[in-house]
Design a protein around this nucleic acid. Structure first.
Lengths: 144, 144
DNA sequence: GTTATTGCAAATTATTTGCATATAA
DNA sequence: TTATATGCAAATAATTTGCAATAAC
């Protein structure tokens, strides 16, 4: 096998068509790049990668398409500390993030317990949680 | 009583002096405003309030002073969704935030359980939490 | 009297938008 | 064909910075 992830690009493509959004050459390149991404790139990095597939993609189109995809719920936009927004496909179940302060690397995790506690706390204060943001800014623990 | 909070301004003043930072007229105004704030204002709002005490305070000085205070750990800077950074004095114990999506209002809460779980999760993945960010974006729950 | 601090205006960074042209459906 | 999308360059928004003037200590 070679690029098992391109299925994600196809799924995103389908979501666009479903909403009557035109699939341009530039968008196809961006979808491919998003589908292949194993990390959490920012708009600039996505632009850089997309240009590798189609030289004509402009940064403005990257931003515009990211907004469309986000509105469709196909990708998620994260505003981690420092720098601009970073993106990931929305096909994996909900999770929160650990950000390695030294490498900028992002690790995903999920905790049912924390999810539950959040809802409980909000409820006690008379609120419903619409969405949340839990980010742990971390350093590698010293060798045990 | 009238302004029981101004003690906070005095404490911040002391922190500045301790580090040999000069207490200018403009900084005094900002400290007063920060000390009196019961909410989580942004730089612009702080500037607006500070000008009420000293017409000569510029927005640039507000930003510069906020940076100094943050570096000293005297105030905290929060980057909630949408708009610019918002600030609060650092004298209350650590807490997280609920942001009311309809009013922009910020409610503070604290959960030992969540704090503990965060540290556990990070440890399992080989990390130490340096700091974190937990924000619940909420709407008022419908009447029971 | 020094040296930090100021206001102002210009610079930065990330992102958005107006407009004439190109293109997907 | 025709409305949607594009690239480019200019516009925003939040924040930072260079510099000559000013004011803390």
């Amino acid at each position: 096998m070679e690029s098992p992830k391109s299925d994600r690009a196809k799924e995103m493509e389908a979501a666009l068509r479903r909403d009557g959004v035109r699939l341009t050459r530039q968008r196809a390149a961006l979808l491919e790049v998003l589908g292949d991404a194993e990390d959490h790139p920012d708009a600039n990095e996505l632009h850089r990668r997309a240009k590798g597939l189609d030289e004509t993609v402009s940064l403005a189109t990257v931003y515009r398409t990211l907004s469309v995809l986000e509105a469709q719920g196909v990708i998620h936009r994260h505003a981690f500390e420092g720098g601009g927004a970073r993106f990931e496909t929305a096909d994996s179940p909900h999770h929160d993030h650990i950000i390695d302060l030294d490498t900028e690397e992002v690790i995903e995790f999920r905790s049912e317990k924390i999810e539950r506690l959040q809802a409980e706390i909000a409820a006690e204060l008379g609120y419903d949680v619409v969405h949340h943001r839990l980010e742990l800014y971390c350093r590698k623990a010293p060798e045990k």
